[in-house]
């Protein structure tokens, strides 16, 4: 009797356990299917969205390139005598405050080194600080510099200086296009208004910024003397590096 009852209970318990195991297995299977489906949707959605994002970041091959720029991809403005033994490359963003400081403290030294024929300066202006203004000033200023160089090559030097002298504060609306046109006129480029307001070289600004990033520029100002990086150099450090490069 006792054994019969207990075996009946054992059987009942066994059935119960089996049912629980089945429920568990069923739930596992269902969860697995849901997870698989979600994962598949995730892969597809992210894949498509990534293509959209890369499309937003690409520029058409037929986009306008300003003339009077040098280097592969027309990235740089070279100032000074081509026979100069040392090349100083300067990567700057017109919205970058440290670049403005660099222009104030080291700019004159760089200019005199250039005039003495010791160095040629390769300006590679880029635009990666659009988030620092409400109007993408970084891009608009670089486009304006390209317009000036394109139409009045000799005015670039003065315009470059004027842009840093008139640099708008961070997180402001930046300079309006009308002010950029005015500065360009003052530098000696009278006919760039439509180029500036129409952002003729906007795609080009994306290309040169991308090219600088690929060349290892992760911030501005980046200064290179014959290809060797100088981290935010003082006038003395720059002069010393130029002298060393001229000897070597």
């Amino acid at each position: 009797m006792t054994s019969g009852k207990s075996s009946r209970e054992q059987r009942a318990a066994k059935v119960k356990a089996q049912q629980a195991a089945m429920r568990k297995a069923e739930a596992r299977r269902r969860n697995g299917i849901i997870a698989g489906a979600v994962l598949a949707v995730l892969v597809v959605v992210i894949g498509v969205a990534a293509l959209v994002q890369s499309g937003r970041n690409s520029t058409s091959d037929t986009s306008a390139t300003p003339s009077n720029f040098s280097g592969p991809g027309s990235t740089s403005v070279v100032l000074g005598q081509s026979s100069a033994p040392v090349t100083v490359t300067v990567f700057e963003d017109f919205q970058c405050p440290i670049c403005q400081q660099f222009e104030t403290s080291v700019g004159p030294t760089l200019a005199s080194l250039r005039e003495s024929g010791k160095v040629k300066v390769e300006y590679r202006s880029i635009a990666f600080l659009d988030r620092m203004s409400s109007t993408e000033y970084s891009t608009r200023a670089l486009n304006a510099a390209a317009c000036v160089r394109d139409q009045a090559p000799d005015a670039f030097d003065k315009f470059h200086t004027a842009l840093f002298a008139n640099q708008p504060p961070e997180n402001s609306a930046g300079l309006p296009d009308s002010k950029l046109v005015e500065l360009a006129k003052g530098a000696g480029a009278p006919d760039v208004a439509s180029c500036i307001t129409g952002q003729t070289f906007k795609d080009w600004t994306v290309k040169v910024t991308d090219a600088a990033s690929k060349d290892g520029v992760n911030g501005t100002p980046t200064v290179r003397v014959n290809g060797t990086d100088l981290v935010n150099p003082s006038a003395e450090q720059l002069t010393a590096a130029v002298d060393k490069a001229a000897k070597g």
Partner: peptide, 19 residues
């Protein structure tokens, strides 16, 4: 999301992953 180019540059700045 608004600036995919910046996102790419931020990844590049770690100098870990191949180009």
């Amino acid at each position: 999301l608004p600036d995919p180019a910046e996102s790419v540059r931020a990844v590049r700045a770690y100098r870990i992953l191949p180009e």
